[in-house]
């Protein structure tokens, strides 16, 4: 696609994209810079400094064993944003593959989409907990289970887009020329449906962060002491009435990140798909 002057102008005019991408960019920047800001790591305990309110020494206060909250939140963002990003990539790849073949082959469609339907009929958190109960906790397993939960969403969007795209006569022309299914799917349909998939994936990125936080808050996600936004809230909950900052600040981090990603997703939709907004 050509990146013309008009397109640049449309991006600049789109305030959601601007704000969304600035927020997402800042979060990713902090996530990457964390080891340089806090070279000592997230596990340093100062027992004398337990449950200190935000101050100059500890910007966001300390937790019940005297660890610096800001430091733990930033290291936690590596886990939370990392899980979200990994889930986004995995669901996009698998969702796209499933959607493409399901949209093109009726036989595949009947089987695969029924499996997707049954996965979607279970509440997502419940399904993720069940999967983690089978596999055990840990970052890798959180990524796998959350990906399984959200892949059907991408597959459905991709399949719907394939169904429209394959009705176009240029696909028929390719069939009349003897083009193979893989050429038609990957070189002609996939590029044309990528925008709708990317939009969906940007929302899944945000949802996956919330899901990981919920799982960790429930104690089945990322195990302590490895910090994630979810398990920081989980730990802070016990002392919530003495140290409000242990619950409020992680929640703000989650909220801002999700807000930024959702803005970006909305903006992308406006950009790729002007008719539908």
């Amino acid at each position: 696609m050509k990146m013309g002057y008009l397109r640049v102008q449309r991006i600049l005019k789109n305030r959601r994209i601007i704000i969304g991408s600035i927020l997402v960019f800042l979060i990713i920047l902090f996530t990457l810079l964390t080891p340089f800001i806090f070279p000592e790591g997230p596990h340093v305990m100062e027992v004398t400094e337990r449950l200190k309110a935000p101050s100059k020494a500890h910007f966001l206060g300390t937790d019940s064993v005297g660890r610096d909250l800001l430091c733990r939140l930033l290291y936690g963002s590596r886990v939370s944003v990392g899980v979200g990003a990994a889930v986004a990539v995995i669901t996009m790849v698998f969702g796209l593959i499933i959607g493409l073949y399901a949209g093109y082959y009726k036989a595949v469609d009947n089987i695969v989409m029924r499996i997707c339907d049954s996965l979607k009929s279970i509440p997502s958190i419940l399904l993720a907990i069940a999967l983690l109960a089978i596999m055990g906790s840990g970052i890798g397993n959180v990524i796998i289970s959350v990906s399984i939960v959200y892949t059907p969403d991408v597959a459905r969007i991709a399949r719907a887009a394939v169904l429209t795209a394959r009705e176009q006569t240029y696909i028929e022309a390719l069939e009349a020329l003897g083009a193979g299914a893989n050429r038609i799917l990957w070189l002609n349909i996939a590029p044309n449906i990528l925008s709708s998939v990317i939009i969906q994936v940007s929302f899944i990125f945000a949802t996956a962060i919330v899901t990981e936080a919920s799982l960790s808050f429930l104690g089945v996600g990322v195990p302590v002491p490895e910090p994630s936004w979810g398990n920081i809230v989980y730990e802070g909950r016990a002392v919530m009435f003495q140290a409000w900052w242990l619950v409020v600040y992680p929640s703000i981090f989650i909220a801002v990140t999700v807000f930024g990603l959702n803005l970006l997703g909305d903006g992308l939709r406006d950009l790729f798909d002007p008719q539908n907004s």
Binding site: Q168, T169, Y170, E172, A173, N188, N192
Partner: peptide, 10 residues
């Protein structure tokens, strides 16, 4: 094809 608008990949 009939419709020259859908017979070419945009």
């Amino acid at each position: 094809f009939q419709d020259p608008y859908t017979s070419l990949n945009p």
